[in-house]
């Protein structure tokens, strides 16, 4: 009963129309004697339709034998992919510092598809972090630009198209 009073008070603020309408109820009625015969109806339906087999839960079903080999194969593939992706690679930062200009040019030409200019610049973080060495970064930028220009002048259209697309 307390709930009812609380609900009516709440409705007074929110919607006086609904507060007034509440007293009328929902207007829904049931056929006379409906509930008296209902349990017989439902019970006869229950007797007529046998209980279904318990459904195996999807996760359990996955562990059945035919699926096990598939799951195992998928796990092996996933592990192999992880190992391949994390394989040791040449570090651009280390190698560039040790290269002669000729070797660097060759390196860039060989790896132009894998690295862009910003990555190559980022591979020399000590120069970016040190303002005094900013000139060296500019030098590297200009050298790289020059190398790229030379490469672009020499490269034929077909190769360029292959690199770009």
């Amino acid at each position: 009963m307390d709930n009812r009073k609380e609900i009516l008070d709440e409705l007074s603020g929110l919607s006086p129309r609904l507060r007034d309408l509440k007293a009328k109820g929902d207007g829904l009625t049931t056929p006379e004697g409906y509930f008296e015969g209902l349990s017989d109806q439902v019970w006869s339906r229950l007797k007529d339709s046998p209980k279904k087999e318990t459904v195996v839960r999807p996760m359990r079903r996955l562990w059945r034998l035919p699926y096990k080999s598939g799951i195992a194969a998928a796990l092996v593939l996933a592990a192999a992919a992880l190992i391949w992706l994390n394989r040791p690679r040449e570090s651009a930062a280390f190698d560039l510092g040790a290269l002669t200009p000729q070797e660097a040019e060759q390196y860039i030409l060989n790896n132009i598809e894998d690295f862009d200019l910003s990555m190559l610049v980022a591979s020399r973080p000590e120069e970016i972090a040190d303002p005094a060495g900013a000139g060296r970064t500019d030098t590297l930028d200009s050298e790289l630009d020059q190398l790229l220009d030379e490469y672009l002048e020499d490269v034929d259209d077909a190769t360029l198209e292959q690199i770009l697309f």
Partner: peptide, 13 residues
């Protein structure tokens, strides 16, 4: 036929 409400109750439904 098992609804005996008025217009406002029908509107609420």
């Amino acid at each position: 036929s098992y609804f005996n409400g008025d217009e406002a109750q029908a509107l609420l439904h």
